[in-house]
Design a binder for these strands. Structure first.
Length: 666
DNA sequence: AACTTGCTAAACAATT
DNA sequence: TAATTGTTTAGCAAGT
């Protein structure tokens, strides 16, 4: 100890650099390496959307015609049109004779003569709404079909070798994705045309009046046409890849429309480009000299980070490197998924929050339809399941200064609890402390961590353990652990030297990781006892503990009995395997009973039936290093969690009940 | 203030 | 020989 030579402080060596490349080799496999530039088809992509002015005109005429037909039909059937809410002029009394004519007989010219431009306009909108509705239905059906197919494939393929099945699934999923994209694109287009406010259900025209059967090819055509009607500059500028921003409008999360702007712009690298909440419906290029994918002098395309001196250079870069090709499209899809995931997550969490608050008779600070990151919870003590998954939580980079998206005027500054785990060396202990079952957290946010460059709020030790426990035989080689990290977390696809070192360090350092010589080298296993042992550092009386926990979670305002009630009320939930997402609460519980070390044995005895999340205990891996296996007889009763892991088992609430001052509730 | 925990960096040995 | 794997020491930050 105290070796002076070591006093030489750490300087940030560029060591991390070399690691990156090596990792890239491992993960990327090099398969896609060369393919990227293949067709470099920026131009070809645009030709798709191109439409000569003549065609455009023609299309518009057709549309107007259709609309007018519709209108006539309505007139004939006595329906009123809501969208043209004020037909001051009794809306051109259409001669009944005309109305009765078979619509097909009316030429566009006639139609234009019959109807005034405003009427045409209104009708057009109405018609579009109808189209939208139909399209949605069609898409929905298609999606269902695909899902069905996928499902049957999965079922059928259960016994089959993985490969072919995987391919098929992939194909289906691709199909599905394409479908979704198409849908989103279309929705967006319609919205751009001023239909934003028009909800599908609003079309008054009975569907029956429209040709019911819309075949896919028609749709394709329709879609093309509709696309063509949008401002040309728009369609070109967007390079047909505007998927990222409209994800929020996707039907899979239709509720998102209600939600406050989540501002997806900053998603890619998290460099917080979110200045102020902005509207998605408007075009990106609000600021002439900026681009949502460009900031801080670098390209914000996911995984790119290419430095560009100015916007011009960036645009050039964008057009060359991120043109419309397979790769970009794939990345886009990934990004879409990230966004979707986040939105879904947000919705879930918000809902849960509301329910919780309702249950606790706490009034939400504001009756907001969708919460912003709730601020009940001071960022410091927040158990991450709420904080982390509350993305504002988009990978916010260190620049914590950038305000969280929402102004949120009341309450403690949210100051982006999310930024917490995002910044450099964060102390993740908080989250660790609450022992969020990492497995549940991961299960919940798997996609998120996988795609978003966010540092996972877990310690290396817990991650390593998770990696090991996830495998069937509960053992991994070092390299496999590496691979797990990179596979599961986008964050660990960078700075490999650093975190790999940390992984090795942790493996060596913690007694809970046991190295076992195997036929094909050494593998690492987890000694669950040891792992659990190291957790409860020195907790004191449980009641106070729980109290602290609760207050730490931001419920400090609650009085003791309330707290007890809260704690208790969690148990039933926790026992339900479906409550995966109660990470924070279960965390509380876990710690709570961690310190109740007296009743351990019971837990031990039946701990084997831990819920799905908890890989069973591994007592048999007891090839302890050279460590004297004193663990057993240690005065400390092998920590309650001994055999299960943190996931709750019935005895727990018994324990807690004993310890908690639960007197006055009920 | 002392202690603990976790992260990062780094040196070094052993193994592949 | 180089790369990987494993061990150890050290300093720092944050939490207890």
């Amino acid at each position: 100890m105290m070796v002076e030579s070591a006093s030489e402080t750490i300087r940030s060596t560029p060591s991390s650099q070399n690691g990156v490349s090596s990792l890239a080799n491992q993960t990327d496999g090099g398969g896609g390496g060369g393919g990227g530039g293949g067709r470099e088809g920026g131009a070809s992509g645009e030709t798709n959307g191109e439409m000569s002015p003549v065609e455009l005109l023609h299309f518009q005429q057709q549309q107007a015609l259709q609309v007018a037909r519709q209108f006539l039909l309505q007139q004939a059937t006595g329906l009123t049109s809501p969208s043209s809410n004020e037909n001051k002029q009794p809306a051109v009394q259409v001669p009944v004779s005309v109305a009765m004519m078979s619509p097909q007989m009316i030429t566009p010219q006639q139609m234009q003569q019959i109807l005034s431009p405003p009427q045409l306009q209104a009708l057009l909108q109405q018609q579009q709404a109808i189209m939208l509705q139909q399209l949605q239905e069609y898409y929905k059906k298609q999606q269902e079909q695909l899902h069905l197919q996928l499902l049957t494939q999965q079922q059928a393929g259960k016994q089959q070798p993985k490969e072919p099945l995987g391919n098929k699934q992939l194909a289906f999923q691709q199909q599905l994705l394409q479908m979704q994209q198409l849908q989103q694109q279309h929705l967006l287009n319609l919205q751009r045309q001023g239909l934003v406010g028009l909800q599908p259900g609003q079309g008054t025209v009975p569907l029956q009046t429209l040709p019911q059967a819309v075949c896919p090819s028609d749709l394709q055509q329709l879609w093309k046409e509709v696309t063509a009607t949008q401002p040309v500059e728009d369609s070109i500028k967007q390079e047909g890849l505007d998927l990222t921003t409209n994800t929020s409008n996707s039907t899979s999360f239709s509720a998102a429309k209600v939600s406050p702007p989540i501002s997806h712009h900053s998603l890619p690298n998290g460099q917080s480009t979110m200045h102020t909440p902005r509207r998605d419906s408007s075009s990106h290029e609000e600021i002439p000299g900026s681009h949502p994918l460009y900031g801080h002098g670098e390209c914000k395309w996911p995984g790119c980070e290419t430095l560009c001196e100015d916007l011009g250079q960036f645009v050039k870069h964008l057009n060359t490197e991120h043109a419309l090709d397979d790769r970009s499209t794939a990345q886009c899809r990934v990004q879409m998924q990230v966004v979707q995931q986040l939105e879904i997550q947000l919705a879930k969490e918000s809902e849960r929050l509301q329910a919780m608050m309702a249950h606790l008779h706490m009034r939400p600070s504001e009756p907001k339809p969708f919460s912003q990151p709730l601020n009940l919870v001071s960022s410091a003590t927040l158990s991450k399941s709420t904080s982390d998954t509350f993305p504002d939580g988009l990978p916010h980079p260190p620049t914590s200064a950038t305000a969280p998206i929402t102004p949120l005027r009341q309450g403690p500054s949210v100051i982006s609890s999310s930024t917490l785990h995002n910044m450099g060396p964060i102390r993740r202990r908080n989250s660790e402390k609450f022992c969020t079952p990492i497995s549940s957290e991961l299960a919940q946010n798997h996609e998120f961590y996988k795609n978003a460059d966010v540092r996972p709020p877990f310690t290396y030790a817990s991650l390593i353990r998770q990696a090991i426990l996830e495998t069937p035989d509960r053992q991994l080689t070092l390299n496999e652990i590496y691979n797990w990290f990179t596979r599961m977390f986008a964050y660990f696809r960078r700075n490999t030297a650093t975190w790999k070192n940390a992984v090795r360090h942790n493996l060596s350092l913690h007694k809970c990781f046991v190295r076992v010589e195997n036929v094909k080298g050494a593998v690492w296993t987890v000694d669950e006892n040891e792992y659990q042992k190291r957790r409860p550092p020195k907790m004191t009386g449980s009641p106070t503990l729980v109290k602290n926990m609760i207050s730490g979670l931001g419920y400090g305002a609650l009085n003791a009995s309330y707290q007890a009630a809260l704690a208790e009320s969690n148990f039933p939930l926790l026992n339900s395997p479906t409550m995966i997402n109660t990470s924070s609460t279960s965390g509380m519980l876990h710690v709570g009973h961690d310190d109740v070390s007296s009743t351990v044995e019971q837990v031990n005895s039946n701990g084997s039936n831990s819920p799905r999340l908890s890989p069973q205990q591994y007592s048999h891996q007891v090839h302890v290093k050279e460590e004297p296996a004193e663990a057993e007889d240690d005065s400390r009763p092998v920590s309650l969690m001994a055999s299960t892991n943190q996931n709750v088992t019935i005895p727990d609430d018994r324990d807690l009940e004993e310890e908690l001052p639960v007197e006055d509730l009920s």
